[in-house]
Design a protein around this nucleic acid. Sequence first.
DNA 1: GCGCTCCGTTCAGGTCGATGTCAGCTTGAG
DNA 2: CTCAAGCTGACATCGACCTGAACGGAGCGC
Lengths: 220, 220
Amino acid sequence: MRVLLIEDDTLLGAAVRDHVLADGHAVDWARRLQEAEDCRAVATYSLLLLDLMLPDGRGLDFLRQLRARGDITPVIILTARDQLSDRIAGLNAGADDYLVKPFELAELSARIGSVTRRAVGQPATSLSIGDVTLQLAERSATRKGRALPITAREWAVLEALLSRHAGVVSKSEIEERLYALDAEVESNTIEVYVARLRKKIGHDRILTERGLGYRLVREG
Amino acid sequence: MRVLLIEDDTLLGAAVRDHVLADGHAVDWARRLQEAEDCRAVATYSLLLLDLMLPDGRGLDFLRQLRARGDITPVIILTARDQLSDRIAGLNAGADDYLVKPFELAELSARIGSVTRRAVGQPATSLSIGDVTLQLAERSATRKGRALPITAREWAVLEALLSRHAGVVSKSEIEERLYALDAEVESNTIEVYVARLRKKIGHDRILTERGLGYRLVREG
DNA sequence: GCGCTCCGTTCAGGTCGATGTCAGCTTGAG
DNA sequence: CTCAAGCTGACATCGACCTGAACGGAGCGC
């Protein structure tokens, strides 16, 4: 497996490179985004390890551009311990996973394994927007990192909304997602659940697009 | 890292091998203890994955001999779901950790990570959350350092919960762990044990996640 | 064997939270 | 302004869950 490491710190970069090499992967090490672009021009990588704080620009923008171009190469971002917003932004920008510095090298191996094992197109383990995160595997949700008490139906509605990031989701789409074919035709159940969700995650986190549906927003 | 997998079941063995390979480790797969000995004669391993039920002898004796020879290679044992006594015997014989079949491959990765990260010779002899501790080898439990009178079934339920730290464990998962294949289909046995455990360790140390399962908390 | 205790399991009845429905109100487009 | 779309508090219902009690089997001391 060929890995592109994008990291400006010499010490950390060398440690990561050696460890990933020891795991049996080929590693190219770029110290700047420009170098990273050059590497990508001449080689194809199975995985990118991307530090978000780099001397020549925001790693985040690099990642966004990558995804905007339709590139689905797995990306693991490396962020500073206190930059929680960076991690969230990174995931929203299309990162597959993240590691908080300083991290155990063994942890790096585990993340590399899980990210590359995950089939392309398979849903990630969590969905989030702003400070609200949905753990898909656990069927749980957190807000600002703390557990958010949420019922099964509420969770499903939130997942339906989150699955389209900040896009509009119609009421009928949500209904189809919540109920089997024996649809509930009448009543305003979805409206009720949206109201209940708003109470829990913030009233203005869910916008109403009249006649179209609902839309999540990053910040209320 | 080089791993020796000792497992006679073809299906399970192949799955484990592929998964550990995907994690970046080298894997040698022995179907019998004799093969395992041969492998160990020509290679050095960082980790052994040892099934205790093998056609040509007790894996337990293999493990005991290993330790008697002073070998401190980490060993994770794989045991059938209802062989609780095997697990305990395995830990007493010098295993570093164990996995109950069937297990999630992701769980395997996690255990491999933690076992190898852990300094050699510091096996996980106990699990704990808050002031409640389970001694795996002794099959006993303590609360606030004092012995907690507990029955076998209660212990098993608590172990099932603790094995996932503070994560949610479903009733069916607990059932699968307590009973062999001839599952008990009806009755609310698990609920009863949860109730009894609550009486002993504190009513609100075990949260009910409606429709999902149960979850331990550090503080009641 | 006999009586005893302990443990695992089952059962019945009670509790409580999740769900869906509705009525009356608010809001925004035209 | 008018009216449809949407919002929200209240509430009946239902099923998941809790719990005390009881039953029967296993083990043990005598």
